[in-house]
Design a binder for these strands. Structure first.
Lengths: 149, 149
DNA sequence: AATATTTTTGGAACAAAATTCAAAAAACTA
DNA sequence: TAGTTTTTTGAATTTTGTTCCAAAAATATT
């Protein structure tokens, strides 16, 4: 058996999807050429960044989810984006925001399990510039990416 | 003008997209019928919940984003899901999680601006059962829904 | 008001992709 | 091993997306 499932998940998580022009046209009762024109325009303008699948993460074995509140070292205050942009590439990170309040960064993390999360914290969140983190572990996800889960 | 843009955004935010089977087939060098079979299987099993667009929210005028940490009243501790599920329907809410730590719930909120956010807090987060909230306002989004923004 | 630009629309022709079907291969079960 | 289920696959069919007009309508600009 070919392990196609894993490859599909990897691709569909970030892209390889497309709008259903004919279905949308029927739904809002407009000609499909008009829908086509408008969607291509949104894509060109960068309004639409991608089309992707939303998964039931439990069902693909990504069981653990956590929000991480991060304090940066004072010398990073002048440019918190530096560390934030270093973190972009890690596929376990769903969201990164620079925020107001008692913390400088907030991350949303997804890992297979708590062991992988522990490794993630040790390896990735131990970098210079991060002085303190606080985990809010998700006990139950109710909504994610605007989708009820 | 028909304001098709708004209708498109509304539909594409939650669905009306589909996987690009032929493109995936080429990418991972498998017959497209095999890809088709596997994707339909994932859909039937509920592994894939939907296909949707990811937007540059700034470009569609959804400028404000905030994470809200919520403390529930003690009488809600036995069933924090009750309030969480009441909140699902509000389109401003991107994520809802029940979490460990000093708070019971965490939300991720998107509104046009801070005024709409203020209305949201007054009208929706003032409900019985919620005793305290803390906002972490996003100053800058770096990554969202796994996509660099 | 006149002009320019953008958006909407239809139709047709084409290209590309999705879906169905049947059969073969592989994996699993007893 | 024999039988069952699941997965893979190619060929044919159906559906859908794309493009190319050209024209009308709406909007914006001067």
């Amino acid at each position: 058996m070919k392990n196609i499932k894993e490859k599909l998940i990897e691709l569909l998580k970030l892209g390889y999807c497309t709008p259903q022009i004919a279905r949308i046209a029927k739904k809002i009762k407009e000609p499909s050429t008009t829908i086509h024109y408008n969607i291509k325009k949104l894509e060109k303008e960068g309004v639409i960044k991608t089309y992707k699948a939303v998964f039931d993460y439990k069902k693909i074995g990504i069981e653990f989810c956590s929000y991480v509140l991060i304090n940066l070292a004072p010398e990073e205050y002048s440019n918190p984006e530096r560390i934030a942009r270093e973190l972009i590439k890690f596929p376990q990170i769903e969201c990164i925001d620079i925020v107001t309040g008692d913390y400088e960064l907030i991350l949303k993390i997804r890992t297979k399990n708590i062991e992988e999360y522990y490794e993630f914290v040790k390896n990735i969140l131990s970098r210079k510039g991060i002085v303190k983190i606080k985990s809010l572990n998700s006990l139950k996800q109710i909504k994610s990416e605007f989708i009820e889960v």
